[in-house]
């Protein structure tokens, strides 16, 4: 038996999902972070974040079309993590690393938290 593995398929699907997000096609939720609004697909959010998985598997919350995050969440940190969910690319800036890491802890994105820890360790001169 033979099987053809399309090696780019996962990234091609993600690219298309990101284009859909950018064009606001079939986005089904608005995430409110302080006063900033982010449109996204619930399925992508819950596939990447333990917090969103818990929210959208709750039958009382899964139909909400707007979710407010804790006001302590930094909108810039959230924007970087949302971009990561849709692109696989995490932009780590030293000035924002704590905001990104705290937001990743809040969103329960454990592997991103580990990566932030490693980034902080590697950039600490001591």
């Amino acid at each position: 038996d033979s099987c053809i593995q399309f090696t780019r398929h996962a990234s091609d699907v993600l690219l298309n999902l990101n284009r859909l997000r950018n064009r606001d096609i079939l986005t089904d939720v608005t995430i409110l972070v302080n006063r900033q609004q982010f449109r996204a697909h619930k399925t992508v959010l819950m596939a990447c974040s333990g917090l969103f998985y818990t929210i959208f598997t709750d039958s009382h919350k899964c139909n909400l079309n707007a979710i407010s995050l804790d006001p302590k969440v930094d909108p810039e940190g959230f924007a970087i993590l949302l971009e990561f969910m849709y692109t696989s690319r995490l932009t780590l800036k030293e000035s924002l690393i704590m905001a990104i890491m705290n937001t990743a802890i809040y969103l329960q994105m454990d592997h991103v938290v580990d990566t932030c820890h490693r980034f902080i360790k590697s950039s600490d001169p001591s």
Binding site: D1, R8, V13
Partner: peptide
């Protein structure tokens, strides 16, 4: 897929949604 002869296809797998119409 153990025991299956897997052939790698490196090109695009699906159509590309345009950035904007």
């Amino acid at each position: 897929y153990e025991g299956v002869n897997t052939i790698k296809e490196m090109g695009r797998s699906i159509h590309e949604i345009p950035r904007q119409d």
